[in-house]
């Protein structure tokens, strides 16, 4: 399963719910305002790092750049471009959006 989260973790509970319910080996792609969670010092960073043990965590590069966050990405988070986004969708048989 590919989980896609697009809401800020410091504003909504979608990331928290996603990380709680995503099963081992799943992929989590952070896009739009959700990318803030994958940056150094963010209140959600510890949760992301703990989750990275069991899940593959990705963040969309253009959304990081548009938020001034390109240089602040947490270790263990894979930054992908739009092509990588498409590949992730194609690689996984199903996909869940946490709107």
């Amino acid at each position: 399963m590919l989980h896609i989260v697009n809401k800020s973790a410091t504003e909504r509970s979608s990331l928290e719910s996603c990380l709680r319910l995503a099963t081992k080996g799943s992929a989590v792609l952070l896009i739009e305002d959700a990318v803030y969670a994958a940056t150094n010092g963010n209140a959600a960073a510890a949760k992301i790092q703990a989750a990275a043990a069991d899940l593959k965590i990705y963040a969309l590069g253009p959304d990081l750049a548009a938020r001034g966050m390109a240089g602040r990405v947490l270790g263990g988070v894979n930054v992908v471009d739009y092509g990588g986004f498409v590949d992730l969708v194609a690689e996984h048989s199903n996909c869940q959006s946490w709107l």
Binding site: T10, G61, P62, D63, A65, R67, G68, A70
Partner: peptide
Amino acid sequence: DDGVYQLMKGIDTKGIEVKD
């Protein structure tokens, strides 16, 4: 809250094609 993010230095919006 997340409003502080509005003032970030180094924003580059070319990739998402919106105004900076």
